[in-house]
Design a protein around this nucleic acid. Structure first.
Lengths: 217, 217
DNA sequence: TAGATTGTTAATCGATTAACAATC
DNA sequence: TAGATTGTTAATCGATTAACAATC
């Protein structure tokens, strides 16, 4: 059985990975959990706990973790080598912002295409760091997926009222993982076994700040 | 002392609020925690626990919560009446997507202006549902804030390498709450007492999906 | 050796879920 | 009345922090 992983662990693993990426690799051969705390802000106890949880046990007492080895462990866990291909439904500002999001590149995640229904968007080609990402009409989604069996993940950036409908469509077409960015909690139909859905509420952190600044009590 | 609130509670409060917003208000005078569970997906126990935590005790046994009353309680907690004004630093795709984000409107949060340094962006005016949002040069931020003492919150959507620098600048200019969308964990300088900072990692939910889809073990 | 750092277990903390007396 | 629903407390669950033996 696959081990369940929480969003928080994944987030921290990302931090470690990105921290190592930015390191001048050959500088220090080893890095300790304490070093990682300094760079990422995650406590050294948490770092070791995470490694333990994920079965990373390559540390050497007194030295720490061999950077090269640790890096490849993290890459493996984050599936960086898999070169995940995803599609984005909705080519509005949010959809386009997601498509050019730098950190996806760092993680070797590629946006293969965007889909929309607006005539003024369909047919355009997005250029992201030299790569071209086409915007197709949603009608072509089924055919597109038939030709790209390796695409199993979609990001949803459509208007709220279209979100549930598009979700159902995606499931029918065989998509296995969906991140919903529409401002609405989507639910999987009961029939949808082993489909992964995460609702990403972009505004939340602003709401928290607003609460803290404006709410006296 | 102000009660600490977690992001999760705020998120759920938002769900309740938005659920009530969509209700045809006069339809049913009362709504129960069980009803709210059906609409929002949050368990009725959690709903009552949240209300208890926030001091909302307006329920009537056998009936539920008077919708009108509940609505105004939620509005109060979410500071909807305050009409929070915020600025956005960085007028790239992400910054512009945030500026036109629908749910901010629903919560009566207004983006007053964007700031950038790119000549091709500075001077432009964003149009969001009839409202005009100007893009100014970052040089004008100080003067702008002097003329708008009511603006205490900023969203950061600048490139990663500029983020920390801009954060320090914002603090110096008197901003009290910051949401950082740059793909990097920012830290508050030690001197920054009672400044609120939330790092919002937009990619995380995709990473979780990628893990679940690609990671066999 | 003495000091540092790991892997792992135990303690703490916080958040969710369950339970239930009160009562409309 | 009987059934439903609240407010609140208690139990459970999960995540973080602390502690420490092992050892390089």
């Amino acid at each position: 059985m696959k081990k369940k992983i929480s969003l928080r662990v994944i987030r921290r693993i990302s931090f470690y990975y990105e921290a190592l990426l930015k390191l001048d690799l050959p500088k220090d051969e080893y890095i300790s959990s304490k070093n990682l705390e300094e760079i990422t802000g995650v406590s050294c106890n948490q770092v070791r706990q995470d490694f333990f949880y994920l079965g990373i046990s390559i540390g050497k007492q007194k030295k720490g973790y061999q950077i090269k080895k640790l890096f490849s462990e993290l890459k493996r866990i984050l599936s960086v080598d898999k070169g995940a291909k995803v599609i984005v439904i909705g080519a509005g500002r949010l959809g386009r912002a997601l498509s050019e999001y730098k950190l996806f590149k760092v993680r070797n995640i590629h946006v293969a295409a965007l889909f929309d229904i607006k005539p003024e968007l369909v047919g355009k080609v997005l250029e992201v760091k030299g790569e071209k990402i086409p915007i197709y009409h949603l009608d072509r989604l089924e055919a597109f997926l038939k030709g790209h069996k390796d695409i199993r993940i979609a990001m949803l950036a459509v208007p709220e009222n279209a979100a549930q409908e598009v979700l159902d469509m995606l499931i029918k077409l065989g998509i296995k993982g969906i991140v919903n960015f529409a401002p609405r909690i989507l639910k999987l139909p009961k029939s949808a076994r082993n489909i992964q859905l995460v609702n990403d509420c972009i505004g939340d952190s602003l709401y928290k700040i607003v609460y803290q600044i404006y709410h006296k009590s």
